[in-house]
Write a protein that binds this DNA or RNA. Structure first.
Lengths: 187, 187
DNA sequence: GACATTGTGATACTCCTAGTATCTGATATT
DNA sequence: AATATCAGATACTAGGAGTATCACAATGTC
């Protein structure tokens, strides 16, 4: 009762996926479906057999790209841990092509709520993975128990995103840590 | 030696500009040039006579929309002034449709360096207008003289932009002020 | 008033790309 | 052998940006 005809070529799937991810990184969204087919060494029809629309393909590619892993440091102090988390985030934004792609992803989120949702949940998941860092800080008494942790994470990741999207220079992690912990006033 | 034929109708210019700005606010970038012509009550050709490309038109419309004025408070304390500046910024993001349009503007910046430059300089100009607020704070001794003011402004405007772009809830201005001035640690 | 000149609106194109449909051939099962 | 599914190629449709051309309107010059 099963699998009568020719089997799907598994390499076709992976070649298309890799071609799509690669093109997204090197060209943003500005490539045609023929480009994908050509880059994958595959017929145009095969691309549309896997993805009903270009949007579907982009959605999967974006999800893959956002799913890079984050380190969960445990240096013994909030300051040390934060420095690692922030350094990692800064390093990510230095990836060539990422800034342009990120901009276009945000742009697509304007038209397509699914993309917006994808960014939201991906970022949320990313940050929740480092949650334990802040819980340990609360236990050590370095943060008040009622601290708004989403505010803390969004504040620096918003800052980095903003500078990154606009191609503005990013400061050293130390400076960000200092400000997040103690603010701008002298006291 | 001048102006022989029919004079350009000045209302055509303004009608096109208004139609473009209006459509950008209500539909992001997802409208056709025919839509613009129809909304302006004008021939399609007239639109292309003013703007060689849709991109040119969008560029001008965006520049106009970003050029809203900012209040320059003088409440006597940095805390008070900051609260005003931040409240104003938050209010801006509550404008219906702005979040989607902002996303698409950022998205366009990915393809078009001119758009990126436009955002950069517009935001820079916006912030420099409130520069005196921070200078006064330094004079009063509320900020260290070597404070990284761009970091201060980008930190909160990055945060607001980030939450705004992703349609995440924005906190009360007081909370942001508190964190910017004193950080997350207890003292 | 005749005429040239320029702006306006309408319409018919071209070009590009996403998405669809179809055809031929290859590879598998029964 | 017969049949079913997959791959590649190609021709189509649809929609929107940008171009070209037309007739008409309004203003100037003679």
């Amino acid at each position: 009762m099963s699998a009568r005809g020719r089997k799907p070529d598994p390499t076709v799937d992976t070649r298309i996926r890799q071609a799509a991810s690669g093109l997204v990184l090197t060209h943003g969204f500005d490539f045609t479906m023929d480009d994908v087919a050509a880059a994958a060494g595959v017929g145009r029809a095969s691309v549309f057999r896997r993805y009903a629309t270009k949007r579907d393909m982009l959605l999967e590619a974006i999800a893959g790209l956002m799913n890079t892993h984050v380190a969960i440091p445990d240096t013994g102090s909030l300051e040390g841990d934060l420095r690692v988390v922030i350094s990692d985030t800064l390093a990510l934004w230095r990836m060539p092509g990422l800034s342009r792609t990120a901009r276009q992803v945000y742009g697509e989120a304007g038209r397509d709520p699914a993309v917006a949702e994808l960014i939201r949940t991906s970022m949320r998941t990313r940050m929740e993975r480092s949650w334990v860092v802040y819980e340990r800080a609360i236990e050590r008494g370095e943060l008040p128990p009622n601290a708004d942790l989403w505010m803390l994470t969004d504040l620096f990741s918003g800052f980095v995103t903003y500078r990154g999207l606009l191609d503005l220079p990013l400061p050293e992690p130390e400076e960000i840590v200092q400000v997040l912990l103690h603010g701008f006033t002298l006291s």
